[in-house]
C-alpha cells in the first residue's frame, strides 16, 4: 500500500471516526486473511468495499461486529474496543445492524416476529411498541402487507428488504451490508438497492461489501478496493473509477466494468 493511499485511507486529524481499524491482522489457520488493515470511517460516511472473491472484504466487515475475531491490532467501534469482553461485544452488536448475502431471516418466525425479536429481547421494548416500530420500518421498505407471512413465502428481494428492516429495528448507528444483492435474481436487485440508497440519503453510516458499482458511484463517499487481504486503494468514487492509482485496481475495474 503506497503512502498516498495510506493517507487517503486515514482521516483528517480532528474528525471523529466511528469505526477504526489499527494494524488489524487475522489468520485462518496458516492463511493470512487480513494484512495490516488501517482504516477509519467517519460518522455518516458510506463506504463501499469491493475486490475479488477471497480478498478478505467480508471478513473485514464481519470483524466490525465480531462475527470474526481478529488476532492482532485493534478495532474500535463507536469508542468501544473489540476484544474478548462479552459486554463490549454485546454493546456493539446492539448498535450495529447487519444484512447478509443469504438474508438469514428466521424461517420459523413471521416477518413481524423477525423484526420484533431483538427489540423485545435485547432492548427490552414492550411488545406493542416494538410491533409499531416494526410496521413503520416495514412500510419504509414497502412490504408492510406481508407482515404476517413467513420468510419462506416471500421472494428473495422481499426477504432482503425484510432483513434490512430487521437491522433497522435495533435503531443502529452503523449498518453493515455483506454482499446484500449477490444472491438475488437480477429483477430483484434494484428493489433492494433502492432501499439502500434511501437509507444512505438519510445519513446512516454504512459499510457495504458489494459488486454493484452503480451503487458505489451514486452513494459511496469512499470506495475501498481490497486484494489478498490488503486495502490496495481507497478513494472517493469519482477518482476511484476514473483514475485508479494501482494497476491491480485498474485490472479489477476493467474486469467488472467491461463485460
Amino acid at each position: 500500500m503506497s503512502d498516498i493511499n495510506m493517507a487517503r485511507a486515514q482521516l483528517a486529524p480532528g474528525e471523529k471516526s466511528i469505526i477504526e481499524f489499527n494494524d488489524v491482522n487475522k489468520w485462518y489457520g496458516d492463511f493470512h486473511v487480513l494484512k495490516n488493515i488501517n482504516f477509519s470511517i467517519k460518522k455518516g460516511e458510506r463506504i463501499v468495499v469491493c475486490g475479488p472473491s477471497g480478498s478478505g472484504k467480508s471478513t473485514m466487515i464481519r470483524c466490525i461486529n465480531r462475527l470474526e475475531e481478529h488476532q492482532k491490532g485493534d478495532i474500535i467501534v463507536d469508542g468501544v474496543e473489540m476484544n474478548n469482553n462479552l459486554k463490549n461485544i454485546e454493546a456493539i452488536r446492539k448498535d450495529v445492524g447487519m444484512v447478509f448475502q443469504h438474508f438469514n431471516l428466521f424461517p420459523h418466525l413471521t416477518i413481524l416476529e423477525n423484526l420484533t425479536l431483538a427489540p423485545i429481547w435485547v432492548r427490552k421494548m414492550p411488545k406493542k411498541e416494538a410491533e409499531e416500530m416494526a410496521m413503520h420500518y416495514l412500510e419504509r421498505v414497502k412490504i408492510a402487507n406481508q407482515a404476517l407471512k413467513f420468510p419462506g413465502q416471500l421472494s428473495g428481494g422481499q426477504q432482503q428488504r425484510v432483513a434490512i428492516a430487521r437491522g433497522l429495528c435495533m435503531q443502529p448507528r452503523i449498518m453493515l451490508f455483506d454482499e446484500p444483492t449477490s444472491a438475488l435474481d437480477p429483477e430483484m436487485i434494484k428493489e433492494v438497492l433502492d432501499v439502500m440508497v434511501q437509507l444512505a440519503e438519510e445519513g446512516m453510516t454504512m459499510v457495504c461489501v458489494t459488486h454493484e458499482m452503480g451503487f458505489a458511484k451514486t452513494v459511496a463517499d469512499r470506495v475501498v478496493f481490497m486484494d489478498a487481504g490488503e486495502i490496495v486503494e481507497a478513494n472517493e468514487p469519482n477518482s476511484f473509477f476514473n483514475n485508479p492509482q494501482h494497476d491491480r485496481t485498474q485490472n479489477f475495474l476493467s474486469q467488472i466494468l467491461n463485460h
Binding site: 462475527l67 454485546e90 452488536r93 443469504h102 438469514n104 428466521f106 425479536l117 429481547w121 435485547v122
Partner: peptide
C-alpha cells in the same frame, strides 16, 4: 441449522441462551 442463523442471532446482540431458545 445453517451457520447464517447463528450469525444473524449473534449480530442482533442476542445472548447465547436467547439465541438458542428463540432462534
Amino acid at each position: 441449522i445453517p451457520k447464517g442463523q447463528y450469525e444473524a442471532a449473534d449480530a442482533m446482540g442476542l445472548s447465547y441462551w436467547q439465541s438458542m431458545i428463540l432462534v
